[in-house]
């Protein structure tokens, strides 16, 4: 691997900016995502910052089972993010659809709509689990 690629990979590991998208969650996982961003866990230690616009984001954090209402918006948000991009599904519903799987208005888990890089199970997923998953995802960038 050349030196500039090494530097770029180092920068990508050290500066992941996340975009949070609620695809139809009950707000439980959303509150845990916000928890992980608070001063108690201090994700800025790892360079993680929350960004409002998908144009600045590196990691799309999706919570909740994808409903038919949010399906198109999720695809549009994903396509607006510049490459390279990653998707993290947080919570049992985002991973598989959870208890809402098979409901008349639910498309299923996030991986049926867009490619997912990391799954974090739990109802709701704990902030420690979210941080662990993001760190593990970043260690795969080589």
């Amino acid at each position: 691997m050349s030196l500039d690629q090494k530097i770029i990979n180092w920068a990508r590991r050290k500066s992941p900016w996340i975009v949070h998208f609620n695809a139809g969650a009950c707000n439980g996982c959303d509150i845990e995502v916000i928890d992980a961003l608070t001063p108690r866990f201090d994700l800025e230690r790892f360079g993680i910052m929350q960004k409002g616009t998908p144009r600045h984001g590196d990691i799309l954090v999706v919570t909740g089972a994808v409903t038919m209402q949010t399906r198109d918006r999720l695809i549009r948000t994903y396509e607006q993010m510049p490459e390279p991009k990653f998707v993290v599904a947080i919570g049992a519903c985002a991973c598989t659809g959870g208890v809402f799987d098979g409901c008349y208005c639910v498309c299923g888990g996030v991986n049926e709509i867009i490619p997912v890089d990391a799954y974090i199970p739990g109802c709701a997923a704990r902030p420690e689990a979210i941080i662990d998953a993001v760190v593990k995802l970043l260690s795969t960038i080589k």
């Binding site: 530097i7 770029i8 180092w10 920068a11 990508r12 050290k14 500066s15 001063p39 108690r40 201090d42 800025e44 230690r45 360079g47 590196d58 510049p82 490459e83 390279p84």
Partner: peptide, 20 residues
Amino acid sequence: RVGPPWYQPLADIIKLVSKE
């Protein structure tokens, strides 16, 4: 809280430059 490490702004800039 602890805050970012000293190289954080540099890493942000390099990452942004290398992105699409």
